[in-house]
Computed example of a mutant assay.
Amino acid sequence: MKLMSVSVLSVFLLSSTAAYSADDIAAQVVPQVAAPLNADSRIWRAPDFKNQKDFLGYSDTAFAVPKGMEKQVQFWVDIYSKYTTSQGVIHDMDNVETIYEVVDFKDLKTDREKQKKIDTVKKEIAIRLKMDKPTAERMRFQLGQKDRMQAAIFYSGRYIEDMEKIFREAKVPTELTRLAFVESSFNIMARSKVGASGIWQIMPYTARPYKMISASVDKRNHPLEATKLAAKLLRQNYSMLESWPLAVTGYNHGPTGVKKMTSEYKTKDLAHLIENVDSRRSFGFASRNFYACFMAVLEVEKNASAYFGSVVWSKPLDSQDLKLPTAVKYKDLVKWFDGDLEKAQVFNPHLTALVTKRGYAIPKYTVVSVPKDKYNIALISLAHRERSIAADEKRTR
């Protein structure tokens, strides 16, 4: 199985309080664990966002690019569709469409070598353009994402149709399922330095009121359980902010912080808040660009065949859910995967390291996923285990 890391941009956009600099070029997550792109593929389907008129806050223009953000969105469209992870651009942090130079990494191997080249090119640009110190300090490097976006579209095929169903049932616009591209590039193993986790990059304090996290099970890492929570959170954001651009921005920045800004500056125009000199001080780079990134992935995914040529989806995982009638060790679960540890992890990313690494039992009543062709074998094995436990308890009594 090929290992693939999550988008650097996606990691940076996890939180406006990210602890690393805008120039970090190494992904701050556990690598993706998934099959190669040519394995288990199926025909890709362009998204269909029709029949949503009664959905929360929906209209034909609900997800049109806000006036004044066109150049910002185009910058991110280019990042997702033009530049690969072997290159990137040095641009102005406040005016992202101002690109000073394209940097190529194809002959460089280590992150240290890449960072050194970035620093060198920045100095050369500052000297060449005779920049003052504030302008030079606004230079930022952004790694290209074209190949990662292609891979993310492939991996999304495992879950996107079920995710759309969850959002439709919640009457939340299905366009919003594409936030997972921005948050994690559909990397189910995405873990940020600040604690966000899973394809929706949900923070622990956000998940705890919904009883998503225990010592053995973290449902933030279960793609569909996390999607259910994301739909609830976005619905709450919209109820507070009454605008999808603001509600989406609130997913990153925090809805209370966005609400405070709209009250202070007496506007619900996201473009105005981003451009306003005073209000932008309340926004980090990630928050200012979060909605533009979302707009960009909507555009790129919708027209993926035009941007990338041949596009395929992964087939959905051939899995079946099973509610454990008794506690089970992870090593016994892996037996139902013929000993394939990586496959067991892909099917069950919600099991924590206490279970997968330290040998703690998976608690009784936990829902796990097993291969469909091993479902009956698993049931028989569990029935034997239950009888054995019952016999032991009887002998003890």
Rank of each mutant, 00 (worst) to 15 (best):
S388P: 05
N276M: 03
G257Y: 02
D340H: 14
K193C: 01
D40T: 08
Y20T: 11
F105A: 03
P204L: 06
Y100M: 04
V355G: 00
S10I: 01
E137W: 07
A46M: 08
Y83S: 05
K109F: 12
A27G: 15
R138A: 13
T267P: 13
P66S: 03
T61C: 02
P36D: 11
W244C: 01
Y307W: 08
S305C: 06
L317S: 06
I362H: 03
A46L: 02
A46F: 06
R397D: 14
P31Y: 07
P47F: 01
L143S: 07
T249G: 09
T17H: 15
Y291Q: 04
K323S: 09
G195D: 04
W336P: 00
I127H: 10
K71L: 13
I274Q: 05
T396N: 13
V6W: 08
A126N: 03
I202C: 01
S15Q: 05
E342I: 09
D321K: 15
V29G: 15
V311I: 14
V297R: 06
W313C: 05
V182M: 05
A391H: 11
I25T: 10
I118G: 00
H222I: 04
R128V: 04
P47D: 06
K329Q: 14
F181C: 04
K114N: 01
Y360Q: 12
S5T: 09
A27C: 15
K117C: 00
Q87H: 09
A152F: 10
S243R: 03
S192V: 08
F63D: 05
Y307Q: 00
R397T: 14
E175V: 09
A390P: 08
S10L: 09
L324W: 01
E175I: 07
A196K: 01
D269H: 11
L3C: 08
P31F: 10
K331A: 15
